[in-house]
Design a binder for these strands. Structure first.
Length: 568
DNA sequence: GCCGTTTTCGGCCCGACTGTTTTCAGTCG
């Protein structure tokens, strides 16, 4: 039972409370789940010491539930509630406009218990005859089910962001000055459900006309006076909302979310006798204190520092802001080099020279080349001889370009935890990233031992993509991350934050965990072509979501210090 | 179920929209 396991069951309890119609208990369980999720230490330890109620959002009742979960793997309350609802009922709520009340009603009156059943009921026109429903809502539900089926997978941030920014730029180029991406994308969440763009103008018609005329638009789904939804050729759905220019700042704050962050902010406003909504921050007399072009004014008028969008998840950022302890977050400008890049020697597309020249163009101070090791045949892993020859090549290139090209390698961590080259080869390299690329289905204990054994090898400087997940394609392999972090801290191993769009591994919560363990994180792209060096922004966004400052990141340092830190 | 410079009970964020209704409940962001 890890913290994440306990949090998952608490979230399930919240969902079941929702179905029971108790939104206050739902919120209480959610808050507690978040508290466990973002906990510094091990929930099991707190349970042992009877200190569970120190977790924010955990009181007497939930503390005893957690204790029971830690001990038995479940709780009687949870099992009881599960009896009350079929397991598929919660998924009904993924359909737009279908909340807990409707889910329960559909179950009670039509026996609908999952998405499949809901679709059948809609197709057989059994829904329209229910009280409170009509033909329209039935069609709506059917469309919603189909969308959930089609878009069951959320979009990757790396796919959605360039699309949204191109459309925002298009609208801006057609006479609307205030345009911004909003929503979870602005918070740099690893996946986004829908693409939200916000415009502030007193000529909404102009902005909306430009929006629907964007060349990639395949279909205009909704075209209202202040909001429009379009579908692009690739199926991506994009929303543009237009607000008066005088409300842009407050609206941007509002539409950036998260919902939980906004709830906290509004409560804070209330305590100060103010009222916050998407039109502004109002005092008791109804005067608007903060609504204009500057979103930061909302925070300043609440006597808070401006909280960066990436932190707005109600994971303690408001408390930190109130206490003046918001971290200074790492930015892309702080990054001085990329330490995980492949070349055409293994499975990359660019030569070492092309990579180095691209790094110079990006303004980096150094670059690290890390091709695959010999066992990874599918990726053309390098033989010992080829690798050693390329070490000399890197030295030459360094001299020629006057730009440091480090020769490392992404070396497979083999099944027994050993590294995929002999010591005398590893010693010739500037550094080694150790990664798991095989045998993902080991038990948690076995995988943890394997990785910990590799970390004990002093040649390993960086642990690559530490959980091995591929968003939407492969679950992380089971591994005891607490243990890995402890080992990393003790041995001076750096953990990678791999910026590849479907990896982002470490994730945001792991970054925060690393910071708390005093473990350095290396934010790298794993680029297989020079254009992929741009993925750095996704990694930096994830690092920022994990509260990392420049001091927490290896490759914000000058080359001399990086070299020193890579030598263990 | 939690929590407390409105405090141990009674709140718990807020406004808009939608589809179905004659006055509003449910959902969303």
């Amino acid at each position: 039972m890890t913290n994440a396991d306990v949090a998952r069951l608490l979230y399930e309890l919240a969902e079941l409370m929702d179905l029971r119609g108790d939104v206050f208990k739902r919120n209480a369980y959610r808050r507690a789940a978040r508290g466990v999720e973002t906990l510094d230490g091990d929930v099991r330890e707190l349970a042992r010491d009877g200190r569970l109620d120190e977790i924010p959002g955990v009181g007497k009742s939930i503390a005893s539930t957690i204790a029971e979960i830690v001990e038995t793997g479940t709780s009687r309350k949870l099992e009881e509630l599960r009896q009350g609802f079929p397991p598929g009922l919660a998924e009904l709520m993924r359909v737009p406009d279908l909340g807990p009340r409707t889910a329960v009603q559909l179950h009670r009156e039509l026996g609908v218990s999952d998405l499949e059943g809901l679709k059948r009921a809609a197709e057989e026109h059994r829904i329209r005859s229910l009280k409170g429903f009509g033909e329209r809502s039935e069609e709506n539900i059917l469309r919603g089910v189909e969308m959930v089926e089609r878009l069951g997978r959320r979009m990757l941030l790396g796919d959605a962001l360039p699309v949204a920014e191109a459309i925002a730029a298009h609208v801006r180029a057609h006479g609307t000055e205030l345009v911004s991406v909003a929503g979870s994308m602005r918070r740099m969440r690893e996946t986004v459900g829908d693409v939200d763009i916000l415009a502030g103008t007193d000529r909404p018609e102009e902005a909306l006309a430009a929006f629907v005329a964007y060349p990639e638009v395949a279909e205009v789904v909704v075209r209202g006076p202040t909001k429009s939804t379009v579908r692009l050729a690739d199926g991506t759905q994009v929303d543009l909302r237009v607000v008066p220019a005088a409300s842009f700042g407050a609206a941007l704050q509002y539409f950036t979310g998260s919902k939980d962050h906004n709830v906290r902010l509004r409560r804070l406003a209330l305590q100060k006798g103010l009222k916050l909504n998407e039109y502004g921050l109002f005092d008791a007399s109804g005067a608007n204190l903060a609504a204009g072009r500057d979103e930061g004014e909302v925070y300043r008028q609440l006597a808070l520092p401006v909280i960066p969008p990436e932190l707005r998840e109600d994971r303690g950022e408001i408390e930190a802001a109130l206490a003046g302890r918001l971290p200074r977050l790492v930015t892309e400008a702080d990054i001085r080099g990329d330490l995980h890049v492949h070349t055409s020697m293994s499975d990359g597309r660019a030569s070492m020279r092309e990579v180095a020249e691209a790094a110079v163009r990006r303004g980096y101070e150094y670059i690290g080349i890390t091709d695959h090791s010999r066992s990874l045949h599918v990726a053309h892993g390098l033989s010992e001889d080829d690798l050693l020859a390329s070490v000399e090549q890197a030295r030459q290139l360094t001299r020629e370009l006057g730009f440091p090209v480090l020769r490392g390698a992404e070396v497979d961590i083999l099944e027994d935890g050993s590294l995929d080259y002999p010591d005398e080869v590893l010693e010739q390299l500037d550094y080694v990233i150790g990664s798991v690329h095989s045998r993902f289905k080991m038990s948690k204990d076995e995988m943890t031992e394997r990785v910990v054994a590799a970390m004990a090898d002093r040649h390993l400087s960086i642990l690559g993509h530490p959980t091995g997940r591929l968003l939407g394609r492969r679950e992380p392999y089971p591994i005891d991350m607490e243990r890995v972090m402890d080992e990393a801290a003790a041995r001076g191993v750096v953990l990678e934050l791999n910026s590849f769009p479907d990896r982002l591994d470490l994730n945001d919560l792991h970054c925060r965990m690393a910071k708390e363990h005093g473990v350095l994180v290396s934010v790298d792209t794993d680029a297989h072509g020079v254009e992929q060096l741009d993925h750095m922004r996704l990694g930096v966004g994830t690092a920022r979501r994990g509260w990392l400052g420049p001091e927490d990141v290896l490759n914000t340092r000058a080359l001399d210090e990086v070299r020193r830190l890579l030598r263990r």
